[in-house]
């Protein structure tokens, strides 16, 4: 009797896992299936590399791919010094109380809703950039700055974790040899944690690539590949959010599935890269 129960339970658990896993593939398959009319309609290459001009029948998503890369890379670049600095203070430089406080602050930051960053960005940062630096205010720079703050907890938590996971015996050996805190951090911990740190940076980049609201609210959504930090841009994510307005059967609408596929690939690449890096330098949990 209890044997049947066992088998049933086992299967229920297994099926749940299968069901959730199938979702992941279903999402990709659905997007490819729905994007097919677009791929068939014209020059396949032009979808990825061409301009966006619906009234001329051009549905290239290159401006959006370029906008996404600009904003996400800028955000990651801005976030790196912030996060590495904060991680160094949290892991070695700060005193015990400060470390605890900073740790709590970073965890608190993970709970701040994206839309609120965007809201404050619109009313506080956009006018500052417009008057102080120039341009329309809603631009790659503004979105990149806010996004950098948004992704910083991801990077900090990850980098901190990998620094703290360095085998204590190395650190103590260095201490015995007379290395001070800074030296232990820079010459012992950091070199041994590079894999984990790189993984943290890529994970944060993945978040930046996938974020919708910040770019939608702060980057201006212009349909052009940006050429400067003060120019407006539209990300793939924002494009998906905006073009839902169009006709379901139209090629214009189908183009958002191309955006979805690109985003999916970006995200998956980032995830796989993180896993590979962590395997190289396994961080004990």
């Amino acid at each position: 009797m209890s044997n049947t129960k066992e088998i049933i339970a086992r299967n229920v658990f297994f099926l749940s896992a299968i069901a959730s896993a199938v979702m992941i593939l279903a999402i990709l398959v659905l997007m490819i299936a729905l994007g097919i009319p677009l791929f068939k309609a014209g020059n396949f290459l032009a979808i990825w590399t061409g301009p966006w001009a619906p009234h001329k029948g051009l549905y290239g998503i290159w401006p959006m791919i370029s906008g996404t890369l600009w904003i996400a890379l800028l955000a990651t670049a801005l976030c790196m010094p912030l996060s590495l600095g904060a991680s160094f203070v949290i892991t070695s430089l700060g005193g015990p109380r400060l470390r605890r406080m900073l740790g709590t602050m970073v965890r608190f930051m993970t709970g701040i809703p994206t839309v609120i960053y965007g809201f404050v960005g619109i009313f506080l940062l956009v006018p500052l950039v417009r008057e102080g630096i120039g341009g329309p205010g809603m631009c790659v720079l503004t979105a990149g700055m806010v996004l950098a703050i948004l992704i910083s907890p991801t990077m900090i938590l990850f980098v901190t974790d990998s620094l703290l996971a360095v085998d204590l015996s190395y650190v103590q050996a260095a201490k015995a040899l007379g290395a001070n805190r800074v030296q232990r951090l820079l010459y012992v911990m950091v070199p041994r944690a590079t894999g984990g740190m790189a993984a943290g940076i890529i994970l944060a980049l993945g978040r930046a690539l996938g974020d919708t609201l910040i770019a939608l609210m702060l980057a201006g959504n212009a349909i052009q590949a940006p050429r400067a930090l003060l120019e407006p841009a539209r990300t793939l994510t924002a494009h998906v959010a905006l073009v839902k307005a169009a006709d379901f059967d139209s090629l214009e609408f189908r183009s958002i599935f191309a955006c979805g596929i690109v985003l999916y690939l970006f995200a998956t690449t980032a995830t796989v890269a993180v896993r590979v890096m962590l395997r190289k330098r396994e961080v004990p949990t």
Binding site: S20, A21, G210, V240, K244, Y264, A267, T271, V272, R275
Partner: peptide, 26 residues
């Protein structure tokens, strides 16, 4: 295998999942 699949799912941008939901509703 499942671990990597769930990692991938966790990394998928939420707008893509929104797009999935929207297509499902249509």
């Amino acid at each position: 295998l499942f671990g990597s699949l769930f990692d991938i799912l966790a990394g998928i941008p939420s707008i893509v999942i929104g797009l999935f939901g929207f297509s499902l509703s249509i």
